[in-house]
Write a protein that binds this DNA or RNA. Sequence first.
DNA 1: ATTTAGCACTCGCTCTTCAAGAGTGCTAAC
DNA 2: GTTAGCACTCTTGAAGAGCGAGTGCTAAAT
Lengths: 341, 341
Amino acid sequence: MLTERQLFILRVLIDDYIKHVEPVGSRTISKREDITYSPATIRNELADLEDLGFLEKTHTSSGRIPSEKGYRFYVDHLLPSLSMKEREIGHSELLFTEKVQEAEALFDQSAKILSDLTNYTSVVLGPNALDMKLKHMQIIPISSQVAVAIFVTNTGHVENRQIVLPDTIEPSELEKLVNILNERLAGVRLIELNTRIQKELSAVFKKHLKDYQNMGVFLDQLLLWSKKEKLFYGGKTNMLSQPEFRDLDKVRPLLDFLETRDLMEKLVSSTEKGLTIRIGTENEHEAMKNCSVINASYTMHGKHIGTISLIGPTRMEYQKVISLLDSLSKEMTNRLNDFSN
Amino acid sequence: MLTERQLFILRVLIDDYIKHVEPVGSRTISKREDITYSPATIRNELADLEDLGFLEKTHTSSGRIPSEKGYRFYVDHLLPSLSMKEREIGHSELLFTEKVQEAEALFDQSAKILSDLTNYTSVVLGPNALDMKLKHMQIIPISSQVAVAIFVTNTGHVENRQIVLPDTIEPSELEKLVNILNERLAGVRLIELNTRIQKELSAVFKKHLKDYQNMGVFLDQLLLWSKKEKLFYGGKTNMLSQPEFRDLDKVRPLLDFLETRDLMEKLVSSTEKGLTIRIGTENEHEAMKNCSVINASYTMHGKHIGTISLIGPTRMEYQKVISLLDSLSKEMTNRLNDFSN
DNA sequence: ATTTAGCACTCGCTCTTCAAGAGTGCTAAC
DNA sequence: GTTAGCACTCTTGAAGAGCGAGTGCTAAAT
């Protein structure tokens, strides 16, 4: 177990490193007003903290920097209380340009605001449209063979896709099909349409549609969803101004990572409500090993529907950033729920 | 006027520089098999070419590199004939993964292919949806106050936006309005809907709609278009591997530029059919002063509707890249027109 | 039993110096 | 008109010196 003094020194050191991004030596720490011990004493403590794995040295005679374990401990146990959170809240409200009308604009602006305020990179993972409920669907023919299928959700989101019309299908049959779907499936989540159809509607189809046999492939085409979360970025190039990435070979993988949809989705998805922090290798990807990722979820009617995330160097200003992310995600939640009142 | 020998030397030098990205000296040139002159002779010619502004030196006793004027001359007069173009065409076809079904996927893949093949950054400027013709429109209420307006174009593209329903409007009136619009405005380009309504439909509205007066604001809301070209990127980080940008302070503005929608749209828009090359400062933006941009237009029914562009260092492999872009844009045109047959 | 002063030692950084190498421009000879 | 020869310039990389910030250890002080 760490002594009070060790805790204190560890916190001071990490605070200092986060601020100045340079290895911190015993002298620097002992110079602080609230420290009464000499450099030599501090050195002993630092050596112990290093043995315990909380600190590292960049070379044999350098000052110490926090290790990943150090950051983890700092985040879990040493963060100054977030009571000053209130002061920040005012900010984020002001920064939205007037009334944000649509959800997409809200996500986009939130990402921009967050990256501007932190100088890190931010990402908003939009809600999965497929989790929304069907309000209305429609099939609009473009030519004799091609049509556009449109699904409007309860949130006002529109999914659409082009489909190829089978030669065999008659317009009147198509209309019947659409009517059945609208009558029976309103309120069902898009992602569940398939199974609902298979479970409940085959009987109805058989009864009302002539050529039910041939309809199978067509329905599959109609309801072939692909993942549809959207990512909104802010400050993509902010990483370039972080001192630890002032080296092309180090930023390159990072920027590449940011551009890779799959990886980003995985990084930023979180099923948990609230706030999660992943430090360095906890992100489980080489390119992110020197980064921390903070995810905050925003909700709708109390349900987690997406996240707003911040990606920065492992030494990021956790304190500031956490309170910011916290209030921003709440602000997003508020505004989102205002839309649908 | 340049002599034959000067032309030859200039071309050889630029070819060499493009290949090796290092200042080229007289010795290097004279060593080539097809050069019969001594370094000293070459030196004299180089000095002349420099005086004429086609070449530059990085320092007093370095080899020469092409100037912007040099590249311009090279592109205009020295490019080896494109007769080998045919050989490349085969490539691009193969690289599309199977059947590309929708236009968006085509643009996206084209950008990826181009950047992969060149190791530069590519951008496809999608067609402006507002230039497409209205096939069908619809208004679908979401709640008592909010509705979604949907516009389907002849190309199968779907535009949609949320609108606030005025309290005064009755559902039956709304239906009438939609019917009128569909009857009268099918085939009109989205961008022209506004003016057509004002010019031709006020009489019709007056006749059929009760509360025509209050409809004005609503119509404005309905038809308030914002620019809608979409950009598809490929190889955003490829610039980082170009030797001339192996310096953070030089890439940063470039990457920032790539992320700025307005600037990119302006950079990549071209009203001309065919292929345009802009070198260095011809791009009229500080961040692009060391880059060349090649735009190639793709067409639909013979009309220019968008561009596919390549952004690379001023010393790019013009020859290869031009033929590639040429065939890729043709390929895109072909596939696009196949969609709508 | 802590704490601290003192000291030798280690790295990393910066600055300078030096030599090698690649080029040039000019002059004089071919 | 062409080229050999030569002095000169500039970049690059390596080697070395000196400085500063820091450490670990020992022995003395509290």
